[in-house]
């Protein structure tokens, strides 16, 4: 793992950490810097025409399933009817948006989304960093590898199975947690039926599932820290804890900043899967978030226009948020995405 990062890797890892969105962005930058290299290549258009053929299937799929739906967003401003189709449905201007903001749910749903997102970010970041820092400072290689293998594992559990485990463990009748509560003399709690617990369950099981996986990128960054720093610190009499605090953590900050920005890019796109899977009528007051609401409106209530309008509002807020967090981060710390 470290081998791949080595070889000038740390700067790279620092500047362009993973996450679906970010790499891609820096991908463009890479192309630019390469074009600026002294060795100029000619483009051989005729000779490389077949490379274009390599790209055709991917482009076709992307046009059909990404670009055409982009046009389909116009139904947010129309009263979509199946009979008349996207083109011929009548325009209604901002009526769908107005309806959303006037509805009793809007405030609550937006608030639920914000709380869940913020709570997840606040918990998952320190957890992953802490795990990476401790793993990196830990001396026993073998035990470390075992811990890594085990902590990565939950990441591969499917959302449905994960939520199945949660409901099974928390079941008021047969769940492990409640049998423990009972044997300690308490009264069983219907965790999934109480809105008050829902957010904590959602967020902390998320930490459990992703902590190990999220730590990979930090761990890689840490293994790129030059041993010179540590040796110099040792000569100066620094304790191990001081080295972690004053060498390792400062090295993680740039990586963390970029990952944080990327996370904010997803701030309003709280994953549909898990929230929907854990949702029931008793906890809907806190578990209804924008993405589950969009699903319910569009596919259960068959209100395509309204659903699209809510989704569009969501993307717009998200884009604004990403740009502002990015600007803020570059001002405050000098680390930013673009």
């Amino acid at each position: 793992m470290a081998g791949i990062v080595d070889g000038g890797g740390f700067a790279g890892a620092m500047a362009r950490p993973i996450a679906s969105r970010g790499d891609s962005v820096t991908g463009i930058n890479t192309a630019d810097t390469r074009a600026a290299k002294p060795v100029k290549r000619r483009w051989h258009i005729r000779e490389n025409l077949d490379l274009l053929l390599f790209c055709v299937p991917g482009i076709a799929v992307t046009v059909i399933f990404h670009y055409i739906p982009l046009y389909g967003v116009v139904i947010a401003f129309k009263k979509y009817s199946v009979r008349r189709g996207i083109f011929n449905s009548s325009w209604v201007g901002l009526a769908n948006f107005e309806r959303f903001f006037r509805s009793a749910h809007a405030g609550q749903i937006i608030w639920n989304t914000i709380v869940i997102s913020a709570y997840s970010i606040i918990t998952s970041f320190p957890a992953a960093m802490l795990l990476a820092l401790t793993l990196n400072a830990f001396r026993h290689q073998k035990y470390r590898r075992v811990i890594q293998a085990v902590t990565y594992a939950p990441f591969f559990i499917s959302t449905v199975v994960m939520c199945g485990m949660i409901t099974l463990f928390l079941s008021p009748r047969v769940g492990v947690i409640n049998t423990m509560i009972r044997s300690l003399g308490g009264t069983p709690v219907n965790f999934m039926g109480k809105a008050a617990y829902w957010r904590h369950i959602y967020v902390w099981t998320g930490v459990w599932q992703r902590m190990g996986w999220n730590s990979i990128i930090y761990f890689a960054a840490l293994s790129g820290v030059s041993p010179d720093y540590h040796e110099a610190a040792i000569v100066d009499g620094a304790t191990k804890m001081q080295r972690v605090l004053h060498i390792d953590i400062p090295f993680l900050i740039p990586v963390a900043t970029i990952l944080l920005i990327l996370n904010f890019g997803e701030f309003f796109n709280v994953a549909f899967d898990k929230a929907f899977a854990l949702q029931n009528d008793l906890n809907k007051s806190v578990s209804q978030i924008i993405s589950t609401y969009v699903y319910q409106l569009g596919l259960i209530d068959n209100d395509a226009s309204f659903s699209t309008a809510v989704g569009l509002f969501n993307s717009a807020v998200n884009a604004v948020l990403l740009l502002s967090v990015n600007a803020l981060a570059s001002k405050v710390s000098g680390n930013s995405l673009f």
């Binding site: 990404h66 046009y71 389909g72 969009v294 699209t308």
Partner: peptide
């Protein structure tokens, strides 16, 4: 940017 659930569904 993406179209979202419903526009994709319609396609």
């Amino acid at each position: 940017i993406g179209g979202g659930m419903m526009p994709t569904y319609l396609v």
